[in-house]
């Protein structure tokens, strides 16, 4: 039932000069999952990633990535895990193709196989036409796509991306998210660190909310909404008239947590599940004339804002 974890940490801690960057982190990510690490800057996302790759020594705790401890077997881990750092950099004087060839050589891929993989990877990210242009002429979006091509060279089981869509224009960001979905479709596990919430929401199966080096919350967006906001769906109800009266009826529908009367014909219903059928029935039975009914999931932005606001309030009260 439970899939094998590809990434597992237990009590993972990193202390930088007396400052706790990551604080006893327990993280489990399963094969084929897209997991979003969410949190403000400085909440320990990048440090966690570097520890997963064996690029930074954990102060204490256990880590396992693709079945290996990155402290002891960093080469085995890094051979199967692709990493796209934030502000991914390439050698500007070398062409895209030469940069990828260097990666292939560092991975010990035989020449013929490397040629094949480079061509495939460049086609995949749509950079085949600029393959022999120096990377310094590339735009931010092109570099980011080259970053994906770069990790594809080693045909990784896991891809870790740090702020992949930061600084991209909306169109490139959307294309990039499509690319992530495609990679997930191939069965690769993806770990995405970001603070751009709606993008994380668009692609992630599960989300972990980071705060001061700790994983504060975890789950699907729906689960998080329930935990933080106490509700998971917004239902908009438009009736012909008498909204205040109908609100009384709707309030009694099971699952509904709150009803806001917007004006004489509009109700905003907050609920713990999708209550559209029940609301429709209740309105019609009460003699109301239903014009429109739609549902909206709360955005991660709301959850995030609400969560960090309440947390800040708590710490102030301490």
């Amino acid at each position: 039932m439970s899939p094998t974890p590809v990434i597992e940490t237990r009590g993972l801690t990193k202390v930088y000069n007396g400052l706790v960057a990551v604080d006893h982190l327990d993280l489990t990510i399963h094969e084929g999952e897209v997991y979003g690490l969410l949190g403000p800057n400085g909440s320990g996302k990048t440090t966690t990633i570097l520890m997963l790759l064996g690029l930074t020594e954990p102060t204490e705790g256990e880590v396992q990535v693709v079945g290996w401890d990155p402290r002891r077997y960093p080469l085995r881990v890094k051979a199967q895990v692709g990493y796209i750092p934030d502000q991914v950099g390439f050698y500007g004087d070398l062409t895209a193709w030469e940069n990828l060839m260097y990666t292939a050589k560092l991975n010990g891929i035989p020449r013929k196989e490397a040629y094949r993989r480079i061509e495939e990877a460049l086609n995949r990210v749509g950079l085949q036409d600029v393959a022999h242009r120096p990377v310094r002429t590339f735009s931010r979006g092109m570099r980011q796509r080259l970053g994906v091509a770069d990790v594809l060279i080693k045909n990784p089981r896991v891809i870790i991306m740090d702020e992949p869509t930061q600084g991209l224009d909306p169109e490139s960001a959307r294309e990039f998210l499509d690319l992530i979905r495609e990679l997930k479709g191939e069965g690769r596990t993806i770990l995405l660190a970001s603070h751009l919430l709606h993008q994380v929401q668009a692609v992630c199966d599960r989300v972990g909310l980071f705060r001061r080096g700790k994983k504060a919350l975890e789950g699907t967006v729906e689960e998080l909404a329930l935990q933080v906001l106490g509700m998971s769906h917004y239902v908009h109800v438009e009736v012909e008239k008498d909204a205040p009266r109908l609100a009384q009826v709707v309030r009694r529908v099971p699952g509904v947590t709150d009803v806001e009367i917007h004006d004489d014909c509009t109700l905003w219903v907050k609920s713990r599940k999708d209550v559209r059928p029940e609301v429709a029935k209740a309105v019609v039975q009460a003699g109301g004339r239903l014009l429109r009914l739609d549902v909206e999931l709360p955005s991660l932005d709301d959850i995030y804002a609400h969560y960090f606001k309440s947390e800040a309030g708590e710490t102030e009260n301490e």
Binding site: L53, L55, P74, R76, K78, G82, G89, F90, T103, L106
Partner: peptide, 14 residues
């Protein structure tokens, strides 16, 4: 400065 270090060190080399 070119931000290549993290990417290169994430390849299977020491």
């Amino acid at each position: 400065n070119q931000h290549t270090l993290a990417r290169v060190l994430s390849q299977p080399i020491y």
